[in-house]
């Protein structure tokens, strides 16, 4: 078990110390991402605090918990889109993010809209093709993005993550809107990414088809 699973509690800084100690014990390799006593502020309110974890290659972490407990905020924090309110966060590798925003040009065919991002990432077209096939979007590659359904859009956003080549995946509710077959494909893609030495941090309010190395339950006690 690589990560500290202590759920965050108010007035409990022990979890941070435990995380630091665990990190020191493992010592040898630098984790892809590590956090100590991490806190996140939204609109002046501390929504999450005392989060500690460290992910090494092949490890995965799931933030679970009810709506509004701060799962997405944590993901955005790790992605560098929110300032760190307290504690420390070290992200040592490139990151790929899938959140609720499509960020694709809806007028373009799917292949071209995703192609923009593979160019930005410096990834090859082959990688994009493989990612499209992994999530069964190849048949839709020439359809304009605006014609895609909710689940297809979600898969398109996941394709961008798959094709990016970033070692650390940040997936915010990756299973939303996906049917059973697509969920299985997502599970397969995640397993493969971990097998190739990547790491995954996901946030979900329902079970995902992956045996996560560790789970951090945010229970809202800090809110």
């Amino acid at each position: 078990m690589a990560t500290d699973m202590t759920p965050p509690r108010p007035s409990d800084n022990a979890s941070a110390d435990a995380g630091a100690a665990a990190g020191a014990l493992r010592g040898a390799s630098t984790p892809l991402v590590e956090a100590h006593a991490l806190g996140c502020e939204r609109a002046g309110r501390l929504v999450v605090r005392g989060v500690a974890f460290a992910l090494h290659p092949g490890e995965s972490l799931l933030f679970s918990g009810p709506n509004g407990v701060g799962k997405s905020s944590l993901i955005r924090l790790i992605a560098g889109l929110l300032p760190v309110a307290s504690g420390t966060l070290n992200v040592n590798v490139p990151v790929a993010l899938s959140d609720e925003n499509l960020a694709l040009d809806t007028g373009l065919p799917l292949r071209d809209a995703l192609g923009f991002w593979t160019r930005i990432d410096g990834a090859s077209d082959l990688r994009l093709r493989a990612a499209l096939e992994a999530l069964d979007l190849m048949p839709l590659a020439d359809i304009p993005v605006r014609m895609l359904s909710t689940g297809q859009r979600k898969r398109a956003m996941l394709v961008r993550v798959l094709a990016s080549g970033a070692p650390l995946w940040l997936l915010d509710e990756p299973g939303n809107g996906l049917d059973g077959a697509s969920l299985d494909r997502l599970g397969g893609a995640m397993t493969q990414h971990l097998a190739q030495g990547g790491a995954i941090i996901a946030a979900s309010h329902f079970p995902l088809p992956l045996a996560f190395t560790s789970t951090l339950s945010l229970d809202g006690a800090n809110a």
């Binding site: 992605a79 889109l81 490139p94 990151v95 993010l97 959140d99 925003n101 960020a103 930005i120 961008r160």
Partner: peptide, 14 residues
């Protein structure tokens, strides 16, 4: 900004 393009660019360290 609304489509999340700016976020995706920021995640890539641009």
């Amino acid at each position: 900004r609304d489509a999340g393009v700016l976020d995706q660019l920021a995640v890539r360290g641009i």
